[in-house]
Write a protein that binds this DNA or RNA. Structure first.
Lengths: 333, 333
DNA sequence: TTGTAAGCGTTATCAT
DNA sequence: ATGATAACGCTTACAA
């Protein structure tokens, strides 16, 4: 049925042996110029396209990398992916993308799949629930980059942003704007990112001589709804607060929705700062003051670090690349 | 270096031949129960993982499909992809995702790459600039689904939304809201989608007895900036209009930004309707009235149609799946 | 300069 | 029930 032209077909048509074809195709020196021309011509006419699966088997290298995200449709990840794909394409690598839907079991399966596919390397944003699956990669010595997350427990190369500073910048900005009671709407604390942003929050309070209050700090699961509901709950509970530092822009969007619903003016009554600077942050209303991270760059960096690791056959080490963040001042705070 | 456990390693360790291992691993009937148990145990201990590249070569099937988008970070595509990936995972397929950046040459390269990878099938949103590259797929009889686009020139299976109806719904809604001079901020007209939405726009005007005016119809390239600039230009030119039907939500976002800048009240002065219902459409301000298409479903449908085509070894035919659209009423119109 | 043959990891066919 | 062998498409020693 689906029959591709093989090197053998070309050989027959050109009246030479298959490895002469191979040599010609690969522009090797030990082949007569005329023969080469002829072979190339025949190959073109027949529509020959190299079979990458055969090459993979032959070389034990696939030129495929795997990317495992919790949700590739999340604008943060979709932009990071873009950076990865750009660089990969530039280096003639292809990318298999899989989602875990934040489920450890799916993550484990995805990793197995990637191993089975013999990917040359892997970029992953782990759920961080457990990490035996990631360890198995390290044991197989499959080059792996942890993206967007810091793993204390694992000695693997990581690319992430400076989220302690990010948390600090956001909180400090709110304080400078005169905010005294700043709610931290954080992600779940088993995630390193949440821990780091929390640390930044605490640092900023401390540096500004503001007392840390447990009643202002909340950890909630991902999602707009989640943030919307929690904010509504806080509002209903009568908790007083004049600022919110949200774990990400999605949370900020949910929070703002709830605040508006309660007639709060933003930023007059409550100032809101997000995180990530997803592309629509500037179009929501009020436009979102947020901690920007260069997502494309993060993806590119991850790929380049991975490529390094793929090329050097050395054992993976705990290299850590921390990317800068900056505060983008808009209307919400 | 990177040494994976092979069937041969397992065979040696278990003291059987490689095909006994193969049989055990594949749960074939002709293998002693005890031997099978032993082999399975050894395989587990050694951490054996099947090599998919070898399988691909062996069977001439990769269980990989290719997806070629113009920009996977565009929220429309990233959601469609999610639908594709979900279904693919369910059916034990993997997905290689590539971007064309709206460049025909990159598209052509991407297609070559996919052929080289021997993908079992391909889902593509063509640039529609030319289509020789797509034709080459048809000639190779590689199952291909055209997504989100209607190709008059090609007889290939397509999945797209009912954009004539969509264009009609949007325009008709604006008219029912009392709008008389409705700007169509359309995509470039060589794209079938733009043609279809235009057709819907014209139909709605006709059905409502409103005269079509060329001066209200504009075709612009993709991007928020593009829409922002064009809207600003229209405003500056003094063109009168009280409604805008935007080719997509991204355009609507850009248009709204420009309108606000000029002090126009939305929807009082100018009503705006978008298209796609990207996930942030409801969070921009005013929340966007838009024509919703189920992007996840579109992705899932595309995969399922592709799978059909992959399984049936029949020649590809021009099957067309047209998905429903519906108008989501929010605050912008 | 060109051809022959082995091998990458797997499964299917054919023997035993 | 199990083992040896060929084949998938390609590249690379090695021979000629």
């Amino acid at each position: 049925m689906k029959k591709f032209v093989t090197i053998r077909d070309v050989a027959n048509a050109a009246g030479v042996s298959i490895n002469t074809v191979s040599r010609a195709l690969n522009d090797k020196p030990d082949v007569n110029e005329e023969t080469k021309e002829k072979v190339l011509k025949v190959a073109r006419e027949l529509g020959y396209v190299r079979d990458a699966t055969a090459l993979s088997l032959r070389y034990g290298l696939t030129r495929v990398i795997g990317v495992i995200f919790e949700d590739s449709s999340n604008p943060f990840f979709s932009e990071v992916f873009k950076g990865i794909e750009m660089k990969a394409r530039e280096h003639n690598f292809n990318v298999i993308l899989m989602n875990t839907e934040k489920d450890y079991d799916i993550e484990e399966d995805a990793i197995k799949t990637m191993i089975s596919r013999r990917v040359d390397g892997l970029i992953i944003t782990p759920t961080q629930e457990r990490f035996e699956d990631i360890e198995s990669l390290a044991n197989l010595n499959i080059p792996t980059i942890i993206l967007g997350v810091h793993f204390k427990e694992l000695k693997l190369p990581e690319v992430h942003t400076d989220d302690v500073t990010g948390g600090f910048l956001a909180t400090d900005y709110l304080i400078k704007k005169g905010r005294k009671r700043i709610v931290l709407l954080n992600g779940l604390s088993y995630k390193s990112v949440a821990q780091m942003r929390f640390e930044g929050y605490v640092n900023a309070l401390r540096d500004n001589g503001i007392k840390y209050l447990d009643e202002l700090v909340y950890e909630i699961p991902e999602g707009v709804e989640s943030a919307y509901n929690k904010t509504k709950e806080l509002l209903l509970s009568g908790l007083r607060f004049d600022g919110m530092f949200c774990f990400n822009d999605i949370f900020a969007i949910g929070a703002i929705e709830a605040l508006k619903e309660f007639g709060k003016r933003i930023p007059e009554d409550v100032s809101v700062v997000g995180y990530d600077d997803i592309s629509y942050a500037k179009y929501i209303s009020p436009s979102l003051t947020t901690v920007a991270i260069d997502k494309i760059l993060e993806g590119q960096t991850a790929f380049e670090l991975l490529l390094e690791s793929v090329k050097s056959k050395a054992k993976m080490t705990a290299k850590e690349i921390v990317l800068d963040v900056k505060l983008i001042e808009r209307k919400s705070a």
